[in-house]
């Protein structure tokens, strides 16, 4: 995940900055508790494609 792209991308719903989770290959919006997948190095910034983050995952986010 390129830092320049991460600087520009935002959650499509609330437009907040995103956290990059390298292990799960996801971009996370803390405000909406959604994780957007990165498939084959391409971020999929669509609400339909996003996964709800579990409570314990949310707690673990810094």
């Amino acid at each position: 995940m390129d830092s320049k792209l991460l600087e520009i991308l935002a959650c499509p719903l609330c437009k907040s900055p995103l956290l990059y989770n390298k292990q799960t290959q996801e971009l996370i919006c803390k405000a909406d508790r959604l994780a957007y997948p990165i498939q084959d190095d391409i971020p999929v910034m669509l609400e339909d494609a996003a996964r709800k983050i579990l409570d314990e995952e949310y707690q673990a986010l810094s």
Binding site: D2, K4, L5, E7, I8, L9, A10, C11, P12, L13, K15, P17, Y36, D41, I42, P43, V44, M45, L46, E47, A49
Partner: peptide
Amino acid sequence: FYFSGDAEVLPLRS
């Protein structure tokens, strides 16, 4: 850079 997105709800910072 490539990414998937919808023009009606742009996933980009203001």
